[in-house]
Simulated assay, not measured.
Amino acid sequence: MSGDQSRRRVGIVGYGHLGQYLVQRLQDEGPRHGLELAFVWNRDADKLKGTVPAELQLGKLADFLERCADIIIEVAHPCIAQTHGESFLKAADFMVGSPTALADSKTEQKLREVAQRSGHTLYIPSGALWGGQDIQRMDEGGLLQALTVTMAKHPNSFRLGGHLGELAQRAWQGRAVLYDGPVRGLCPLAPNNVNTMAAACLAAPSLGFDGVKGCLIADPNLPDYHVVEVEATGPGGFSVRTRRKNPAACGAVTGAATFAAFWSSLLVCQGHGGRVYLC
């Protein structure tokens, strides 16, 4: 561990709502959990002024090595993992807050290989995925035959362009299915909206992004929460379905409970070696 041997140094990449939440909790509660803030980077550096101490602001992301972080958390955009993930993993553990980045097969393969070589862990936060550890155990035991993740939100809670964006806007008159198919095809179309689906794909590598099915729904009758349904199927007629209601302000991309889930994930991010680990 670099820096103070008694504390694990955390770098935050991205300062949107989730980044701000993590920074605040690290400042308020980090020391008693053996954590301290190493740096905060944001594409718009002005957003950090007045809220993040100057000595913790990182001007250029390429200079992250100077801050000796033990774990780097991306909560910005999938392009960060695709562009900088390899460098991060060579130096530290890396939590990918936008796992849709790994729907690109080359990125996933590269980061898996770097994690194995470096001995650092590529952490995938569960976020809004309920039962992720159970899915992972089924997959590891060769028992997972099919997995479907259905996400439903208010039309205003999507950040979509192109054809999906048009479909979402038309959904004001009633519930509309925006996409139904392999998660790999959906991730590039909705990179900021389906990280829960991507986490499920990484929990079930035997199925992966091509085998896990995703269904994305816009529903004007969901003004103050998101719904995530997960259905796992195994041998002999086994199946389990969960339905999670995640409170969310109208127009919010991320549900309120997901913020606390990220913090819980961070608290277990240590000692898992060179692998991909759902936390």
Rank of each mutant, 00 (worst) to 15 (best):
K213E: 11
P220S: 13
E166I: 10
T150M: 11
D180C: 04
N42P: 02
L267A: 05
A248G: 04
P155K: 11
C187S: 12
M95S: 07
L18T: 11
K213W: 14
T148C: 08
R43L: 11
C187V: 10
A128Q: 11
A248Y: 04
L35M: 04
Y15L: 06
V13W: 09
L143Y: 13
Q27L: 11
L222G: 09
R170M: 13
Q270C: 13
S105H: 08
T233C: 14
L58E: 04
I135L: 15
I217Q: 09
F94M: 04
C279Q: 00
A252R: 08
R170K: 15
L102F: 01
L65G: 15
G131T: 03
S126R: 15
A115M: 08
G208A: 13
S126D: 08
K110Q: 15
G11D: 05
Y277G: 01
G273W: 06
A232V: 05
Q82W: 00
A200S: 08
G59H: 07
V268S: 12
H33T: 05
D44T: 13
F94D: 02
Q20W: 02
I72T: 06
M138K: 09
Q27V: 09
V228Q: 09
H163V: 07
Q24A: 15
T148W: 04
W41E: 02
W172P: 00
Y123F: 12
I124H: 08
G14V: 08
G162C: 01
A171H: 01
W172R: 14
M1H: 11
L143E: 15
G271T: 00
V228C: 09
M1K: 07
M95G: 02
V177H: 02
V194Q: 04
T150N: 10
G119L: 12
E29C: 00
F94L: 03
